[in-house]
Each structure stands twice: as C-alpha cells, then as structure tokens.
C-alpha cells in the first residue's frame, strides 16, 4: 500500500516551480511600487489641476495585478462647477 502510494503520488516540484514563477513576477514588480503609485497619483493630479479644480482627496490611483496583465485604475471625481469652469 505504501509502495503504491509512493509511485502514484504526483510530483510536487513542478508545482513549486510554477508557484514561484508567478509569485516572483509579482514580488519583483511590486518592489518600490508604493512609490510608483504615489508618484503617478501626484503627477496625474498635477496634470488635471492645470485644467480644472479637483479635490486631491477625490483622486484615487490603484494598481491591480493579474497573472498576465496589471490594470492601472485612475478614479477622479470632478465637482460640477469645476467641470463647468473648465468648459
């Protein structure tokens, strides 16, 4: 029975290898990442405020990681007057 289990057990090293590859791709990309998002947020805010008044609290920048691609989500809330002023 034990011998049978030994031979029928699937190999575990390929799983280790795959998990590491996915994990490290994320780990590597996210080193110094908090910095990147903050910088992006500041620059986006600066670019927008050239054209309209926005509340810095109402700008959110998020980086969402997927296996193949990551998505940068920029959410800016524009008050009604600010949009009208710019128009």
């Amino acid at each position: 029975m034990n011998l049978f289990r030994l031979f029928s057990r699937p190999q575990s090293a390929p799983a280790a290898r795959e998990r590491l590859q996915v994990l490290l791709a994320h780990d590597r990309a996210s080193t110094g990442d908090s910095d990147l998002v903050t910088k992006l947020r500041d620059e986006i805010l600066r670019a927008i405020s050239k054209h309209m008044q926005v509340d810095s609290e109402k700008v959110s920048v998020k980086l969402e990681r997927g296996v193949q691609v990551s998505t940068l989500v920029v959410d800016v809330e524009i008050p009604f007057d600010a949009a009208r002023k710019a128009a």
């Binding site: 190999q11 575990s12 090293a13 390929p14 280790a16 290898r17 590491l20 590859q21 490290l24």
Partner: peptide, 13 residues
C-alpha cells in the same frame, strides 16, 4: 523523483 526543485529550476528562477 520530482519532489525537490532541480538545480536548473532554481537557476532559471
């Protein structure tokens, strides 16, 4: 036996 990462796996990673 496939139950430990091989040298090449670690080197590649």
């Amino acid at each position: 036996r496939g139950d430990m990462l091989k040298v090449d796996d670690v080197l590649e990673i």
